[in-house]
Design a protein around this nucleic acid. Sequence first.
RNA 1: GGCGACAUAGCCAAGUGGUAAGGCAGAGCUCUGCAAAAGCUCCAUUCGCCGGUUCGACUCCGGCUGUCGCCUCCA
Length: 491
Amino acid sequence: MALRLYNSRTRSLEPFAPLQAGRASIYVCGMTPSFHPHLGHARTFLTFDVLRRHLMARGYEVTYVQNVTDIDDRIIERAATEGVPWDDIVSRYLAEYEACAQRLGLLKPDHEPRATREMSAIVDIVNGLVQKGAAYESGDGVYFAVEEGAFPHYGELSHQSIDELRAGVRVAVREDKRGRLDFALWKKAKPGEPTWPSPWGPGRPGWHIECSAMARKYLADQIDIHGGAADLIFPHHENEVAQTETYTGKVPMANFWVHAGLLNVDGQKMSKSLGNFTPLTQILDRYPAAVVRYLFLQTGYRKPSNFTAESIDAAGKGLRGLYADLDALRARAKSNAAPGSRSPAPSPASLEEFDAYLDDDLNTAGAVGWLQTYVKCSLKDGGADASIVVATAQQCLERFGLPSDAESAGLTATSSQVKLNKAARMELSIIAGEREASDLELVEKVISARDDARKAKDWAKSDRLRDALARAGIAVKDTPSGAQWSVDGRS
RNA sequence: GGCGACAUAGCCAAGUGGUAAGGCAGAGCUCUGCAAAAGCUCCAUUCGCCGGUUCGACUCCGGCUGUCGCCUCCA
């Protein structure tokens, strides 16, 4: 079976055929660091991270480029509001994004070009477009002449005609251009704005042109897959296609346009004004990154997705369950293993079943279901070779970019995660008769006091202590080998 | 107004022209001092509504309704 992907350009599912045998080039529109990265960013980049991992697993040599648009109107506005230099804004939010990307386990792009460092490539394209007569200089910039028919295929990607698009244009924009649909390739400097030199005087690139320049420079005139979130289809990608294809004369610039669905929060579009905008950093502080990843894997990447506290809690429990079953299989494999035996290879047949889901337009949700069933059934079926199942499941987790066990996924309690609030600390320190002990020591003291009570069959005291721990956010469970505890909701 | 996506159990969510994966929640039982955890079992005669095609549709076609998104701020 071969990979099939939904191509927004043709609105159909197509077999993936690379331009060069064995290679795949992907360009994904990355961050504009003008504000905090949010969950929607995470969803988009996780989607392409999994696509990339799957292509690699299928034997392609993948070149993945994800740009940074580090100059645009919003960055300038933000800087003006805060009264700081524009590049302070960029470095602040870019650093925040990179920290999040690392926590999410996103593979590092092969190239991460930044618009401001690619000015000559940008100016070259604008120049070329002007020379071809597809663009013109006006009082405030250089514009692409959509309305004069510079690009006959304009609108094909977003499947709208020029007339339809024109009808949709809202308020008259105060730009000095000939046609309403014409868009800026280069913006001449206004006072106080950052500038770069150009044949049209100091200024800065318009939005869209940077991607045309960087995709060509770091990949080629024509690439296999161009990705981004669905909200970029128009105008960003439409304009990008117009620029690149007019400039290079090669069609199409991207064989596949792959768009990730947008994310809603509590049923509504995420926005600052609705007050449901949560920086990604805060989400990752609250939930393990692996849970965020698992949550999005459970949804088709093209579908609109709704984020709620319930949905991520359920995802966390589902992932924990998977890891628990896997641990049980590991234990079985260990007890069955002959001394000195090597760990076995994954089952090719099972792996193929898993990959078949991903081949089907990256059906991660189906693949998750398959993996849950595979692990659960293997656990019930004593006849299955546990070590092979474990090896196979680990491969699947790697395809997903998920850690191989609960501990590395940050799902188990560790001493550093014990943080008692004031009231809880007070209560436990009274019970323990300790004032100076660390949070961790306090918890352990109370646990052992409870153990003593249980040995003495003083159930009332034992339950009292368990309740106190529960109020402090510590869950206790008694096992044959003694009491185990965990930070609530963590394990 | 134009363009599009989606509509499957309490929630999330796969899927197929031949009779509904999985997760969460819930219920019962086992275990347990009681819990928790774990194990076992159960949980959509039905896939928004109405027509059509078909031996047969949730799956294909047409219409309707609803939700959401895009139409130069957007990942």
